[in-house]
Design a protein around this nucleic acid. Sequence first.
RNA 1: GCCCUCAUCGUCUAGGGGACUAGGACGUAAGCCUUUCAAGCUUAAAACCGGAGUUCGAAUCUCCGUGAGGGCACCA
Length: 492
Amino acid sequence: MTVRVRFAPSPTGYLHIGGARTALFNWLFARKHGGQFILRIEDTDQKRTVAGAIEAIMDGLRWLGLDWDEGPDVGGPVGPYVQTERAELYCEWANWLVEHGYAYKCFCTPEELDEMRKEQMAKKEMLGYNGRCRHLTPDQIAAKETAGLNSVIRFKMPRNGETTIQDAIRGPITYQNSQIIDAVLLKSDGLPTYHLANVVDDHFMQITHIMRADEWINTAPLHINLYHAFGWELPVYAHLSLVMNPSGKGKLSKRTQAFDDDGQQVLVKVEEFQEAGYLPQAVVNFLANVGYATGDDREKFDAHEAIDSFRLEKINPAPSRLPYSKLDWLNGQYIQEMEPQALARAVKPFLDAQGFEVNPEALLVVMPAMSKRLKRLPEAIDFLRFLFDDVPLNATAEMLTHKKMPYDAAKRGFQEARDFVATVEPFNLDTVSTGLMKIGESVTTNEKAGPFLGQMRFAITGQQVSPPLFESMVALGRARTLTRLDEVLQLF
RNA sequence: GCCCUCAUCGUCUAGGGGACUAGGACGUAAGCCUUUCAAGCUUAAAACCGGAGUUCGAAUCUCCGUGAGGGCACCA
């Protein structure tokens, strides 16, 4: 039997990082076993459905590289993959349950249910539907229907006994059936609730393993009883731990507007990670490290390695926070591995957004130096600002000297550098570095280029922090370097 | 209130009766290197929630606490 798993988000907004992790684990499992990863849209709550959300979710998955074998856009043999397009199916099976005595019509109004809940709270009883309509006679039902009363279909949960779910991560979990209420399966608008839709779909879509978040554990016994009523084969359940707020208080939600200990904004939507300049492979690696470990101390691994090592039983059941600072480190690692071309391409949109007109050629020279410095792509903006903004150097001659390079020596150094830049052929990393090293060594009292190069770097870039001198000069180009050196010389 | 889950350094984790003096990673601190900032290298500090029990032996198994989280909708 081939493994078939699904990721089944509601189209209520964007792809949430926790959802992305659930999707990733499902995808990893499917790929590991040569099975299928299916994308299904659970849009049975019309009130919460947001236009464009399906596209946004798919964009997020695509960005992360989580490709699906069947889904709303690519279709597949057991479609459609959007639940509102399968409404008839659910209706049919809900009625089947009613006909076979596994479900019943309930005419209670929302107001009545509200009242019931209040009463239960007051009496400190178990919360939930009390089964009032469970034993309506056919005559009573007919009477209510001719009176035009709205109804829903509720599951007739067994009142006695217990239900045990065999969770692949947590082992057996047992519930007393009496604890489980008669859940609504079909709403009065004719659409199914999650409970009915997910069971019917997972059956007909031949889903073999259900990997979903911890928050669904409590609904599993209901679902199992539905499978029993239908006489369908049970899938394997595996409940993933929850992703919590950085504070450790509560689950991470889309509304989280917090900063972690490093003062970094907590990102929640996948697209926010993209906008913040994280690489998809870093995010995938990061996510795969939360609640999961290869077991051999590897922290950095690509998707293929993750697939190779993946085992359901290795998933950690404990809830966890996202270690954002580790993401920064991972992202830096992946950036370091990038070819200059690729890095330049990745950085360009961020510079563009800043209004910096990028000369790709010049950018290439500084990329090797940048790759060691960037944790997140947009950090390049501050590093490279001097390439785009020609602001006058805000300094005095005094500031350009050094205890190993007093006034006169500094002046001579800058003058020689100016003459050198004006004439050297060609003007490239090689020639510039050897030439300036020589000048530097000749003007310092310790005969080391260091002090000169440091001051020179500041003079050229005007920045406290910048790429190294030689790369910066070559990126600037001969003409602009000369202009800046002339400015510097005027200070002396 | 009821039900369910979970519990190892600050954080993410390894470990599943003896190999534990509890390992790795991020972060933090110090040092080296150095042309600023990084990167890199080296080193350091840092944890088995508590209590009983089982056992020759418990981070590991059991129970009871405690703490944290989740659920108890005509939302998913």
